[in-house]
Design a protein around this nucleic acid. Sequence first.
DNA 1: ATTTATGCAAATCGTTTGCAAACCT
DNA 2: AGGTTTGCAAACGATTTGCATAAAT
Lengths: 144, 144
Amino acid sequence: MAEDLHLAISARLTGDDQRYTTGRRGLVEVLRTAGRPLTAAEILDAGGLAQSSAYRNLAVLETCGVVHRVNGNDEFARFELAEDLTDHHHHHLICTACGLVIDFTVSDRLERSLEAAMVTVAQTSGFRPDHHRLDLLGRCASCG
Amino acid sequence: MAEDLHLAISARLTGDDQRYTTGRRGLVEVLRTAGRPLTAAEILDAGGLAQSSAYRNLAVLETCGVVHRVNGNDEFARFELAEDLTDHHHHHLICTACGLVIDFTVSDRLERSLEAAMVTVAQTSGFRPDHHRLDLLGRCASCG
DNA sequence: ATTTATGCAAATCGTTTGCAAACCT
DNA sequence: AGGTTTGCAAACGATTTGCATAAAT
């Protein structure tokens, strides 16, 4: 049941003067179980919380670094647990037909190249990069 | 004045039974001159066209593969000329503070690694990747 | 008791659409 | 003329907010 995860999140929220309420714990459980970024609609369908409360709590969780907002290719916001809580650095496959977003990983070697590119950019522009985002866009298994 | 570009676009539109009207040419000029993805608001401020016409023409240009929609980190859609028209394969620096999006490129070596990763994913999942998207998120020069 | 979270309904705002007039060809 | 494009104003829909009630500390 991933009690470690909930403890870590509770600590993070408390440190930010926020409570780890039943509703928030429910959101985290839904996201953890899904294993892929979920839209607000999918989260609402899971049934735990009213629309406004779900959105408000997702905003709180995002501010505290528990939840991460994912920009796909459609008009819907998606949410996943922060990488530093799941210890699962990953990227996203995005279906250009149905909008589905699923996770994938690349080799450590490629990750290091991406980090190196980030450093180069930091040195050659006024931009100060913080992290990278690599997505593959195409058609998911269902959309062929 | 990049007459080549306009000729190529005109051909592309004609081939799709669309006209290269003054308004559409104006949109292309605005995007070409900007050299970075522009929001709808920025495009409208350039003055050429009413809001509804701008959005409708951007949709047409996108369908015909002339304009590409860029997903940044904020709520605003952004638009740029398609890479195969500008011959400028690039990625995006995205400011997490103000939303600004600017272009950058990486080494051919890194590009090849990204392509290779795409092929690997295609082989090991039901996903059929079409292209990739690499963004660096951080703070732009103005936002420090 | 006081602060914070919840649910309902209404507001917000970027984007889209209906429709009549203007524009091609 | 016959079809397309334009601009205005109204509609749309995902997300946000106001406010009164319920829960937590």
